[in-house]
Simulated assay, not measured.
Amino acid sequence: MSDETRYLERGAAWTPLWYGPGFAVLGALAELATGGPVHVVAWVLVGLGLAAITVPWINARRRFHTVRVTSTALWQGREELRLDRIAEVTEVGTPAGARVLGGGWSVPRNYDELPVRLDDGTVVLAWARDGEALRAAIRSVKGWPA
């Protein structure tokens, strides 16, 4: 069986990388429009500096908030859960103290939680921006009816 990606949610896009340089261009244009001196070197440094501090943030979000379902595993950030360990994803209650997949203390903000019952009876919390799509992807890969 191939290990192709069946569902993918990136933790962040690379587009915020352009916010800093865009801000710098707007600042330089504002200086130009007001007739004052345009500090080109300063605005270039501001744009590059803001882009440079954005790269680690994007990289961390892509590493720790990416959700992927392949034909064999569910990936939550850097944690892998083999799909053959999943017993149920529908009508599973969330017990207090359920472990969150991906290594966090809680489900990331602005993400839906999806309780998952494992083959040993324990319940863990998976998460995705679109919890229903994640549930459907897992059910589809496991061959369960929708």
Rank of each mutant, 00 (worst) to 15 (best):
W105F: 13
G93P: 01
L118H: 07
A146G: 14
G97P: 00
T122A: 11
E88S: 08
A73N: 11
V25H: 04
G27R: 05
V116M: 01
L125V: 03
D120L: 06
R62C: 00
W14H: 10
D120Q: 05
N110S: 14
W14R: 12
R85G: 00
R117A: 06
R78F: 04
D3W: 09
G143L: 05
N110D: 15
A51Q: 03
G35P: 11
L48S: 09
P21A: 02
P56K: 06
V67E: 02
T34F: 09
V44M: 10
A126M: 08
V124P: 08
V100P: 07
D120G: 07
V69S: 00
V44T: 11
L81N: 03
A12E: 08
V100G: 10
I58L: 14
A133T: 01
A146H: 15
V69M: 01
V41Q: 13
G35I: 12
V89S: 02
P16S: 05
S140K: 11
F64K: 11
G49T: 10
R85M: 00
V107C: 10
V55C: 08
V67I: 14
A137N: 04
R99T: 13
G47F: 04
A42P: 03
I86C: 04
V38D: 02
G22M: 11
G143N: 05
W18I: 06
D84W: 06
F64L: 15
A60D: 11
L50A: 12
E79D: 13
P21D: 00
A33D: 03
P145T: 06
P145E: 07
V100I: 12
G47Y: 06
I58V: 15
H39D: 13
V123C: 13
T70P: 09
A33M: 10
N59V: 06
G103E: 05
R129S: 07
G104S: 14
P95A: 09
